[in-house]
Computed example of a mutant assay.
Amino acid sequence: METVVHLRAAVALLGRFPALAGVDLDVRRGEVVLLNGPNGAGKTSLLRACAGLLPIVSGEAVVLGHDLRADRRAVRRRVGLLGHATGLYDELTVADNVRFWARAARAAPADADAAMAALGLDGRLRDVAVSRLSAGQRRRTSLAVLVARRPELWLLDEPHAGLDHEARDLVDGLVRDAARAGATIVVASHEHDRAAALAGRQVTIAGGTVQGEPEVARVP
């Protein structure tokens, strides 16, 4: 099965601090992988590095066939990152945000509409400015942007944060559907039991490195 993420002795710096201190990790197409570890362990840095947002300064880093050390921008249209920052434009409406980011990823307008419907944003909220949304509604909008872009690799940093129980279940369904469709998902979550139920494999990160021997992967 195709390897989507291949890291060997990968090092990334935040200033002079090694956010990743020699990570070894392989993730295959269709896997759902849960990243475990305390705050500051390097989980967010790993996700950002795989998205091409944090430069790798040494080691090997290949994502979706792109060498991130040679060109980390090339991977960005094929990857969807849900981070702590929403990445939304406050002055634009929900629909305008989702359509803008879908168009940037060369997705069809129908993909934006379908994503808003999937996240319950196709009613009155579609025409509301992001600045007027609650934290949970902003999170739904960010998720709709990711879904609309139809990425091959989903990188989810605390995807359940700020959501009610219904919305958390919705996120879980979207992750399962994406994996069945062939997408690859790497998720960091403090909702361990919920995220572990989605994952076929768990990886522990501490001190910017992957700890222990990886579990045998299975595709859900």
Rank of each mutant, 00 (worst) to 15 (best):
M1G: 14
E2P: 07
V5W: 04
L7E: 07
R8G: 02
A10Y: 03
A10P: 03
A12N: 01
G15R: 03
G15K: 07
R16Q: 14
P18C: 10
A19H: 04
L20Q: 06
A21I: 05
G22I: 02
G22Y: 12
V23D: 01
V23E: 10
V27Y: 05
N36E: 15
G37Y: 13
T44E: 05
L46W: 11
L47Y: 04
L47S: 01
A49Y: 11
C50F: 03
C50Q: 05
L53N: 04
I56P: 02
G59E: 02
G59V: 04
V62S: 00
V63W: 06
V63I: 08
V63P: 02
D67M: 08
R69A: 01
A70Y: 07
R73L: 13
V75Q: 05
R77L: 09
R78S: 08
L82Q: 11
H84T: 03
D96S: 13
N97E: 10
V98I: 03
V98L: 03
W101G: 03
A105D: 03
A107Y: 01
D113H: 00
A117E: 15
R126D: 00
R126H: 05
D127V: 06
V128H: 07
S131W: 05
L133S: 01
R139Y: 07
R139G: 09
T141M: 10
T141D: 08
S142G: 15
A144K: 00
V147C: 06
R150G: 00
E152C: 01
W154A: 05
W154F: 09
W154I: 06
W154C: 07
L156V: 04
E158H: 08
P159F: 06
L170S: 11
V171C: 03
V171T: 06
V171D: 08
R176F: 13
D177R: 15
A179R: 09
A181L: 03
V187Y: 08
H190T: 05
R194G: 12
A196V: 07
A197Y: 09
T204R: 15
I205M: 15
G207N: 02
G208D: 04
T209G: 11
T209N: 10
T209H: 08
T209F: 09
V210I: 14
V210K: 12
Q211H: 14
Q211L: 14
P214E: 15
P214L: 14
E215Q: 14
E215L: 14
